[in-house]
Design a protein around this nucleic acid. Structure first.
Length: 587
RNA sequence: GCCCCUGUAGCUCAAUGGACAGAGCACCGGACUUCUAAUCCGAUGGUUGUGAGUUCGACUCUCACCAGGGGCACCA
């Protein structure tokens, strides 16, 4: 908000600098950090420091910066829409006219509604690839972070103005699938999944993996099965199709439960063929080395080609027996994504342990000469551990299934709803419990720096107090309750009272920040920015709720506060929406 | 050995290179005859891992070191 104003004043400041024979200043606007004040600020330290160097004078920078600030302020006067201008410690602070500023912020919010904070379309298309589960395995809390982070980043980019393609890449083939199918044929033949299909599939996998490592004969049997697969043994392919389908149905249920949708789904099994032909191409072009004649693999000596040392290492793109690897498929898939979808950018929301691997893929793309190689970005996140730094592993079976977590969280949330709001009808109670449970599960995934490990424990996952999604949902519910009782918003112009409560001032300030924060979150791929704002808004609203009666206030105050209440709820729920969290009507 | 990430209050975490480093939990003390107390208010709590450097200014950037985690040719 106020981009035009900022730009205009920045230009005027530059004109003034030129008149004063000072260097050009690249004006960086910041919000005035003092509580209870609205305005924009910039400092003159950089300018002062440059000019001192340029003139060779000896003067303390802070003092000179302050002098310049004064000179500029004198010439600038008080621009339209501002109340006063002050200079202090090298800063130039411009304070908005409270009434006009408040009206502008509230009108912008209420007019745009669910769209408030959104940026203009930038005519650029980005694909966000996330989730990437393997079929025939459990879907556990470790998979939650990429899911919620990817969903949130997608929402934010879209809101910021990008055209977003949400993509999933499902690992429906590979050694893990062969292990599973071997175990099924050997120990579970003919069995069908019951209600709990993901658990059932996961259990068979864990068992298969244990057997695989316990006996070389079993390992050989699994490899033999892989051989049959490579020859497209029709019986095996039929089993694969059937069991794969079970997994995919289970995933669909989970995505529906979590409220996540994809625009496009890639399957690993569909990328094998193009992968093998690109390997041949890379060999011919001298990028890949073919050691198969001497019993080796096909690989790309990345460090050698890039002129680096122990940085990109070596990327194997085809096994010595000619079978494909993850990289075999990822290279053509990347090209397909960028070209078929006409992408301007592609983002991989993938666990940090694959950082080297993805940098190898990106480097390979660059070496292949694709001009868009710089537009590939790995959004790396740290994993979700169990207490005591225990890594969640579907091989070892030390997992907490996502379904179990959601079920338990919903059960507990339902208990609290019963206690807090016993008169609600049961369906409504279920609805509230679901929104609260999902919110409290999702929020920790998007509210911290992606580079930090999340430790999962039941207690904190199901804790719904304070800095959590329910806190913010509750603020929305309280706001909704006031608006319901008021029977709607006042129509037409609403004058802004002269004396505003500090809580009101803070609220308006925070609401006004949403558009900027959306852009920042999109640029940095950081949903945390929005999570922080949502929390600050909810906190400010609860403060307002406590201190500023709405319904009982005199008419002028009441009308203004009703609008402020509506705008607050809108801003919070827009933030929550971006994070993939829904807002219930009651709690 | 090489590379990456993390290190901020007792714990979990914030802080576009800028004005006094902020929240929550925990602990202590308060507030429901009021628009929903899933809330609010108050108090306590810091040599931002260590040492240098860059800068007018460093939690933020650079380098070294310490501690923890991760990665490094036929897994995904």
């Amino acid at each position: 908000m106020f981009e035009d104003t900022k730009k205009e004043i920045a230009q005027r400041i530059n004109t003034i600098c030129r008149e004063l024979d000072l260097p050009e200043l690249k004006v960086q606007w910041a919000w005035i950090p003092f509580a209870g004040q609205w305005g924009i600020a910039t400092s003159f330290f950089k300018l002062a420091s440059e000019d001192i160097k340029h003139r060779g004078t000896k003067k303390p920078v802070p003092q000179y910066a302050d002098e310049i600030a004064h000179l500029v302020a004198d010439k600038l006067g008080i621009p339209d829409g501002f109340d006063r201008v002050e200079t202090i410690n090298g800063y130039l602070n411009l304070y908005f006219q409270p009434g006009e500023y408040t009206r502008k912020v509230l009108d912008a919010t209420l007019t745009a509604g669910a769209h408030y904070g959104a940026g203009d379309p930038n005519n650029l298309r980005v694909m966000v690839e996330f989730s990437q589960p393997n079929t025939h395995k459990a879907f556990h809390v470790g998979h939650l972070r990429t899911l919620m982070l990817g969903a949130a980043v997608s929402n934010i980019l879209e809101f910021a103005g990008w055209e977003v393609v949400r993509a999933n890449y499902i690992g429906d083939i590979g050694l893990h699938v062969m292990k599973w199918m071997w175990n099924y044929l050997t120990n579970h033949n003919g069995e069908e999944p019951g209600e709990d299909r993901i658990r059932w599939l996961g259990d068979i996998y864990t068992e298969a993996d244990n057997l695989f490592h316990s006996d070389p004969a079993i390992e050989n049997a699994v490899r033999a099965l892989f051989g049959r697969w490579e020859k497209r043994d029709s019986e095996l392919v039929a089993l694969w199709e059937k069991t794969r389908h079970w997994s995919l149905e289970g995933f669909d249920e989970i995505y529906r439960m979590m409220g996540v949708k994809f625009d496009h789904v890639f399957y690993e099994s569909e990328e094998e063929q193009s992968g093998k032909s690109i390997v041949e191409d890379l060999i011919i072009r001298g990028i890949a080395r073919d050691d198969r004649p001497t019993g080796g693999s096909v690989y790309i000596p990345l460090d050698e080609l890039a002129g680096t040392k122990e940085k990109y290492r070596v990327l194997v793109i085809l096994r010595s027996d000619g079978s494909s690897l993850y990289a075999t498929k990822d290279i053509p898939l990347t090209i397909k994504k960028m070209e078929q979808f006409s992408l301007d950018r592609a983002v991989w929301v993938v666990d940090v342990r694959q950082a080297l691997y993805l940098s190898q893929i990106f480097k390979t793309i660059e070496l292949m000469g694709y001009p868009w190689a710089n537009n590939l970005y790995h959004l790396a996140y740290e994993i979700v551990n169990l207490p005591g730094n225990v890594t969640i592993s579907s091989r070892e079976g030390a997992v907490v299934l996502l379904e179990d977590l959601v079920r338990e969280a919903t059960r507990r949330a339902r208990q609290i709803v019963d206690e807090k709001n016993p008169e609600l009808v049961p369906e409504m109670k279920d609805k509230v419990a679901s929104a609260v449970a999902l919110g409290s599960i999702k929020y920790p995934m998007v509210s911290r720096e992606s580079g930090k490990v999340v430790t999962f424990d039941w207690e904190s996952a199901l804790d719904i107090n304070d800095q959590t999604a329910p806190y913010m949902q509750y603020a929305c519910v309280r706001a909704g309750s006031i608006l319901r009782k008021a029977g709607g918003l006042p129509s037409g112009e609403t004058p802004v009272p002269v004396d505003l409560h500090p809580a009101e001032i803070t609220l308006v300030d925070l609401i006004a920040r949403l558009p900027d924060e959306v852009q920042k979150a999109a640029t940095d791929y950081k949903p945390m920015t929005i999570a922080n704002l949502a929390y600050d808004l909810a906190k400010a609203f609860n403060d307002f709720y406590q201190n500023c009666p709405v319904l009982q206030a005199d008419e002028l105050t009441r009308n203004f506060r009703l609008k402020l209440t509506a705008a607050s709820r809108q801003a919070i729920s827009n933030c929550l929406f971006l994070l993939g969290i829904t807002t219930p009507e009651v709690m």
